[in-house]
Design a protein around this nucleic acid. Sequence first.
RNA 1: GCGGGUGUGGUGAAAUUGGUAGACACGCUGGAUUUAGGAUCCAGUGCCGCGAGGCGUGUGGGUUCGAGUCCCUCCACCCGCACCA
Length: 936
Amino acid sequence: MEYDFRAIEQRWQAKWKAGDAYKVTEDPSKEKFYVLDMFPYPSGAGLHVGHPLGYIASDVYARYKRHQGYNVLHPMGYDSFGLPAEQYAIQTGQHPAVTTEANVARYREQLDQLGFCYDWSREVRTSDPAYYRWTQWIFAELFESWYDTTADRSKPIASLLDALNSDGLSTVKPACDGDWWKVLPAGKYPWDESFDGRLTADQWKACDAIAQSHILMQFRLAYLADSEVNWCPALGTVLANDEVKDGLSERGGHPVVRKRMRQWIMRISAFSQRLIDDLNSLDWTDSIKEAQRNWIGRSEGASVHFGVAGHPERTIEVFTTRPDTIYGASFMVLAPEHELVELLTSAGQQEAVTAYQTAAAQKSERERQGAGDHEVSGCFTGGYAVHPITEDKIPVWIADYVLAGYGTGAIMAVPAGDERDWKFAKAYGLSIPAIFEGVDTDEAVYTDKDKALCNSGAFNGQTPVEAIPAAIAFLEGKGVGKGQVNYRLRDAVFSRQRYWGEPFPVCYEGDIPQLIRDEQVTLPPVDAYLPTEDGDPPLARAKKEDWNVTRGDRMEYNTMPGWAGSSWYFLRYMDPHNNTEFCAREKSDYWGQVDLYVGGAEHTTGHLLYSRFWTKFLFDRGWIGFNEPFKRMINQGMILGRSNFVYRVQGTDQFVTSERRKEFQTQRLHVDINLVQSDKLDMEGFRAWRPEYANAEFILNEEGDYLCGHEVEKMSKSKFNVQTPDDLVERYGADTLRCYEMFLGPLTQHKPWDTQGISGVHNFLRKLHRLFNQTASGSAATDPQYRVLHKTIKKVSEDLDRHAFNTVISALMIAVNELLEAKTQNAELLRPLAILASPVAPHLAEELWQLSGGVNSVLDQAWPVAEEHWLTADEETYPVSFNGKVRFQLTVPADLDAKSVENQALAHEKAQDYLAGKTVRKVIVVPGRIVNIVVG
RNA sequence: GCGGGUGUGGUGAAAUUGGUAGACACGCUGGAUUUAGGAUCCAGUGCCGCGAGGCGUGUGGGUUCGAGUCCCUCCACCCGCACCA
């Protein structure tokens, strides 16, 4: 009987669907296992063969865990808010929901044909109001929370109000901007210029409601603030730091500039240390953990206050990791945007400073970073700072290389010990005090830490390692500085000036935002998906009656960023239809952390950071019982395309075969891989492909073929190298495609797609099918056949445990080859093999399970156990080597002791050739492995 | 510059604790068969050599009876971050 994969796959997909085979419910009697895929953004292009790689791997693992008796949660959904649908809407006027719906349907169709074991009753879509209602709820709870830095926990805002009313800020330390009282919007506050942030209960109570709400805003975890944001004019929206690459937007590659805007912001920075510390509890690769640490960017050092000459009441605060080098600070540099620039600038320098500031503001982020080559530029303010120890007056400059967004936006420049400061000093002729013993820092900068300090007062003779803590203590004693830990991680901008995202559950009364919590705010229809003429976001176009809720003076016009919905979706799968909570605590207690998270490595840094942040927040507030979302994570490698090329002789319609292209001046052109078989071009097909090739003539090779060139590169439409899973499922079946993608190589590695190899895997499934079709009643299984089975059980189980899916397929191939060779006909023996094959080839496995007399579905069969006695052979064959070179094989009884093995090896007739005239110095016998005879 | 990773046949790769390098496939070569197909079956296939044998896991060294695996050096490529004080 032929392997009719179409009939088999259709039959079982229909039966599984009819029987709800993949539906799971909480079952306290069973141990749970949560296997999650990164849910896709449903793009219009559909899936290519690279997309399902991770889905197949997680599916295989989920099925394996189910066989092992776990209650497996394996859901799927869509990250369905996003830019492409909106941009399509801008162009066509079609509502993004319509585009999204169509794309989702297409994705579902493609996913279904691969036979995944998703429980589709748990599907979520981030753009579904029933879902984003809870994204809005989490936002609202963040708004209603503050971060207690003493307890290192998020707490409800009510507890902060209690504290403010009774003790002001004397007993609580909420996470906030350092100088929160300086950035308050205009209003009436009961304090004067000298206020330093130590708010008393009386002052608090003396504030009116508006002032109180402004103050409270400074402590909320979701807060509104004017801040420098990454503004992308082409996209008309702000972007988060991780959405900007090299000063260009990640999507579309448009220039990004800095702009000051009032935005919703998430206080993720309060979680910095926990986000670093808790990485230790996770089973992730070092590279992902490192990327997280890198992004958070912790550095230890000191904050130091320099005086301002002529303004004894003001100080310039800087952060430094090298407080030991403070005696070498010969000038200061402020970011051009620094608030003290105005005060410091002398009349004579005013013009130059303003020009420099203007130029800096107009530069794009990319230009400002010098696009890699770090040119020095700066401008003297004309003002001076006072060194906190020597009390010398040192000049203050502004320069691009000091970033407003890091530290305090100001540095003490130590040219002797810092590369950039040194370059800057050289460029502008500033002094470079020598502070390292025996180092001429006039010639080159010295950044190592193994020379003692000099010209450094009390620190003279100490190495930096000793001097750093000493310097911190000294500065603290003098009251001009203190030890400090700094993080690169900034608070995350949470507003987007787009239509296709979650609307905020917020309205405004004046400029005071009010939460709307009793009714869900849904996206109103708009007449166009572009900003208004006043530059307001698209939602400002909605008329009052278009909103389902209108309150206050106006609604919030911004929407939430793409990462909002994807930061908690793994929780919603646990309780997807709950309309009173985002997820019932009993459900999240049962399902717990994601045990295995599979996805691409491309955009994970931000996603992981944000999901971890929200998870910690929800944990702090007691809504879930774990503080990290993903216990273990695997990044699948990218499947690369294999492009084909034709070579057109320049200025002609002639195309030359790859072997002879050097004889001509040619132009290399991508050709559709569907027109190429084993690099041979279908010339007729090529002519028919595109009108400009209709008259193509070919210069062929000796065999009369046209051979195409090839190269491995990313799959993309424009390279005509996209392979869709649909074609392959049609031709070989889902099981073949699943097995082939797993067989291709280690999951985590990038690898080129090569359709040719698929025939080997397809053959394997045909042979497996044949093996079961040759069973005969009454035929007994032999011992060697049992050994093959149990060896395979062991190998497949171990390989699945360590996610080595490629060798699982090899092991099954070997088993099938050997069992066919051994003419196995016993159904009893074969049945466990169907279970072993079921994770990778579920349809065929089910068919063969039934065929071999299995009861119920193969899906629920217990995973077979390898029996030890079948794993040991009666005889053992040792490779016998002389001085490490294997010379012959020696077969002995398996239970023979090492000494006897040694004797037999030495007595072996072939050994005599190698022993002649030599003395045996040593014999090593590794039981079950090898015999090595050392002669000399 | 910093951090992470990878280098093994013509190709994808295997070798889990140091123990026969190249399993399993693809491709290729030869043969058989055939309803001529992108089918099936058999044999061969790391390199050099007629052979015995020698050489082989990016380079060079080291440890060891034994190294793809451990240590040091250098090289190449890929990915992430990057004027972060």
